[in-house]
Every structure is written in structure tokens, then in C-alpha cells.
Computed example of a mutant assay.
Amino acid sequence: MENVNVLITSAGRRVSLVRSFQKELKRIVPTAKVFAADVKPMMSAACHIADGHFDVPKLDAPDYISVILYLCKKNNIGLIIPTIDTELLALAQNKAMFKAEGIEVVISSIKFVNACRNKRVIHDFFGSHDIKVANEYTKDNYVLPLFIKPIDGSRSVDTYVIKTEDDLTDYHFQNDKLMFLEYIDHDKFEEFTCDLYYSKDHQLRCIVPRKRLSVRDGEVYKALTVSNELVPYLKKHLKFVKGAVGCLTAQFFLHKTDASQIYAIEINPRFGGGYPLSYLSGANYTKWLIDEYLLEKTIEDKFDVWERDLLMIRYDDEILVHGFKG
């Protein structure tokens, strides 16, 4: 293999993701490296943990893709793992160009990425798969309480629970990006994030539901793997998704006492911040990506490989950078 190294883009604080690729990659090729890229790598914990790091332009810079391609070719990188929503479309649009250079970008199709980035479109997607979503109201005909979120948001930014008319402001009505949605009662429903693995042929191979026990800054802080109705339900409704590959993070509400009541929230076609729990439970998406994209192996169904009722409690740690000049 020529291009055996891996690049994690927009690495930020994804230390656990970098370490998982280091562990799995070096079992196969001990000399292989996992690189990380970020706009400010010296301020990125994941970049310091990686075997090497790159300073790259901002995602909206015209040379972002060309710089990534240059770095990959220069450093024998054969696999790119994107991590944040705002880089997905550009990488999907240029996936063929990277592949022509022997570099695989693990990203879903342009059409599917676009659908995931637009909450109204992904609601239509769920509907086409017979999966319920919260009803969307018009801004002159709604029912309280309601939930407001942007059509293109992420990390729970610009979201609101509206319980009374006094909670509504001109901003909510005037911002065309904000959706007025049926409120799903958290006293009756529990929220789960499911890590889904799709093989190259767009077949669902694994599902790990994670119960979100505590969230901080939009990312799960405490979580529990749970084997529940979501596993057979998603096997049935999302067994094949055209254009979907790699790790997808999908969110659902499941009724506490009536497992037949399931509502979909959204899908992010990338690794989520809580993936380390799925990885440590035995759902080794990291290895499967290396197998598929670097070793050209076929991935079969692996629905039963992960540990149930595994609790993850995260904590802060320190990375020291000596001689830092800012």
C-alpha cells in the first residue's frame, strides 16, 4: 500500500477519535501515521495527540480543498475522515478528485449530505422511509409548547423551547431559517443518538443507540449504550440508504412506555462527538473504515458486536505545549 496514512480534518478536540485510528491503523501497518488538520493546530488537543498536524485555511477559503489535496499527496495519506458539518459538502463535491489521486474521502454523496444539512429536507427523507418526525407549524398557526430550531443548524445552536407566547420574539418570526416544530415532551420521551455504520454499498451494518444522559456545549458528556426498539426499527426502515457511507450519527426520540412511538430528529453524515462510547463498546467503525477503504475488504452485518449497558462518563484532561509563543 502506498497511501496508508490517515488524515482527520477539523480535528479540534477529537482526541479519542485520533487515538482510535492510531490504535487500529498501527496494528496493520506499524509505521503508518494519523495526521490531524485544523485552522489553529497549536490550539487543538487532537492535533497534539496526532502523529503530525497541519495548519490549513478556513473552510470557506477558496484554497481549502487544494491545500488538503496537496498535504495528502505530500504525506502519503490515503484516507480522509471529516468531522464537522460545514466541511462535508465541499469534500463530497471533490470526492472524485481525491479518489483519482488514490485518496479516499469517507463522505456520503452530495445529495445525501445536502439533505442532512437541511432539516426540512431530512424530514422529507424520514417520511419517505416511513419514520415519523415532529410536525412543522407555520408561523401564523402553531400550537404551544413548541420547539424552534434552524434548518441548517448544528450543536444545538439557536434552538428554543417555547412554552408561552411571551417566550416568542420578533427574531423567531422574522428569521426565515427558524422552524416552528411540534414539541416532543421529554417527560414522555427519551432522546437517543444512534451511531450507524454504512458500508460502501450503502447497506446498514451496525447500530449503536446511545442514551444522552448529559450534554455540554452540544456534545454528549455522559451516555449509555442501550439495546432497545431502535435497533430492529432502524434495521427495517434504514437498511439501505442511497449515498450513505461510513459513520452516520442519527438522533431519535423513543417513548418511555410505548416503544412503537419513535420520532426522528436529524442525521449528521459524520462521526459524532459521542462515537468513542460506541468504539469502546466494540462497534469498531474505525477498523471497518480502514478495512474497507485501505484494505479493500468487504464489511458484513455486525449488529451484535457491541456491549450493552455500557456507561461513559467524560472528564476534562490537560495537554501541555512547552515553549508556546502564541
Results as ranks from 00 to 15, higher is better:
M179N: 02
D124K: 15
C247K: 00
E104H: 15
F35V: 03
Y160G: 01
I262M: 04
Y293F: 15
N284E: 07
D140A: 12
H255I: 14
L213P: 01
L91D: 03
P41M: 13
A283P: 01
S10P: 11
M179H: 08
A90E: 12
M42C: 02
S214P: 00
A50H: 02
H172T: 11
Y142F: 15
D170P: 00
Y183F: 15
I262Y: 04
D301C: 06
K211I: 01
R210I: 02
T249A: 05
Q93K: 12
V226Q: 07
V121N: 03
P30V: 11
V133E: 04
A134D: 11
I68F: 10
D167T: 06
T298M: 06
K235I: 04
L17G: 02
H237Q: 13
W306A: 04
D195F: 09
L248K: 00
P269T: 01
L168H: 09
F54Q: 07
H53L: 04
A90Q: 07
D63K: 11
T225N: 07
L71M: 03
N94I: 10
I84W: 00
V133Y: 06
S109E: 01
K188W: 09
E292D: 09
A92C: 02
D166W: 03
F21M: 02
C72T: 13
N228A: 04
I290S: 06
Q22P: 02
V67E: 07
H129S: 08
F125H: 05
